[in-house]
């Protein structure tokens, strides 16, 4: 055995270099801005809402008295709350089912090669890039009681007017009747969440290796067999992600209802929890009940999110 060679001390790096090489320091420093942002703009209001919901605070009396679940039972005793809860669940469920079906079809179509594909993809994504308030105002005009272009279109193709399917009036009066108003809200939610779901599903679809599709072709599987046995099972994890986003966005959204129907017509037929929390807490001044309404489904939503993420992870390892 020869003697080990003397180990030369490494040259001292410059001071900034020294800190840059320490992942334990650099990592937290780079994460800091987003942590501050989330704590200040998400964490703080959330904690405040939770505190409010267990108190009897109002706009008039801002002292916070701990009242336990009193505010919750008070909120739940209100029939409007129960209607809003039902509407929230129903709107979310129906709109997400529609989004899932349409999103899959759209993604399938868009994954094929055709001229102008890029333009169509861009157009489909547009609703997602529009600020939601502006989009809803647009829909307000589209669903107008007198001048609705949708009605004009229905009249043109013979679905609206005397002796037709939706007749006999000249207009659908979308936002003036409870059932059409509910359909309108769902429609706008679909319009709003479909683009993102489509893009997510499209990404998932293109991530399926060409070899698998070739193999399925050679194995003799036709379009529907491939769809049911290869594409959809492989898409499931990514579908879970798309649905999760859709559920969270639809569930927590108040803009659509607030701008489109203000919860009516005539009263509360399209009320959802988020809009009801706003009307009760901000416009009605009952901060505690508004907060209780707003955080009511927080545990359930958190549960849904955790479940979906777990599903996605499990499918990922497959």
């Amino acid at each position: 055995m020869s003697a080990p060679a003397a180990v030369q001390p490494a040259a001292r790096p410059s001071v900034p270099r020294y800190w840059m090489d320490r992942e334990g320091i650099l990592g937290p420093v780079m994460l800091l801005p987003v942590v501050v942002y989330i704590v200040a703009l998400v964490g703080f209001p959330l904690v405040l809402a939770l505190i409010y919901s267990f108190s009897d605070v109002t706009v008039g009396d801002q002292t916070i008295n701990w009242v336990g679940f009193e505010t919750f039972s008070q909120a739940m005793a209100n029939p409007t709350f129960r209607l809003a809860l039902r509407n929230t669940l129903l709107f979310t469920l129906i709109s997400q089912i529609v989004v899932l079906v349409l999103g899959n079809i759209l993604a399938l179509v868009l994954s094929a090669d055709f001229p102008g594909k890029r333009l169509v993809r861009f157009l489909i994504l547009l609703p997602w890039t529009t600020p939601i308030a502006l989009g809803v105002i647009g829909w307000l005009w589209l669903l107008d009681g007198l001048y609705s272009p949708i009605d004009a279109l229905l009249r043109m193709i013979g679905l609206l007017g005397p002796d037709t399917l939706f007749g006999p009036g000249r207009n659908m009066l979308w936002l003036a009747q409870p059932d059409t108003a509910q359909i309108s809200v769902v429609l706008v939610h679909v319009w709003r969440t479909l683009p993102l779901a489509t893009v997510i599903l499209l990404a998932g679809l293109t991530a399926i290796p060409q070899d698998l599709r070739d193999a399925a072709n050679v194995d003799g599987a036709g379009f529907f067999r491939q769809l049911v046995y290869i594409r959809i099972p492989l898409l499931l994890p990514i579908m879970a992600v798309a649905v999760l986003y859709g559920i969270v966005f639809t569930f927590t959204d108040m803009t659509v209802v607030y701008l489109l129907t203000r919860g009516g017509p005539p009263v509360d037929s399209t009320q959802v929890l988020a809009s009801w929390a706003y009307f009760k807490g901000i416009e009605g001044g009952n901060l505690a009940e508004g907060a209780a309404t707003a955080v009511f489904l927080f545990p359930a939503l958190a549960g849904v999110a955790a479940l979906m993420l777990r599903m996605a992870r499990r499918a990922e390892t497959n």
Binding site: D211, L212, A215, A216, D219, A221, G222, P233, L234, N318
Partner: peptide, 25 residues
Amino acid sequence: AMVFQSYALYPHMTVYNNIAFPLKA
């Protein structure tokens, strides 16, 4: 019948179902 460089086995199916897939088709 074709065998691919990547084998292109269906990742969500068992070996049995992979082999049976052309017969099911």
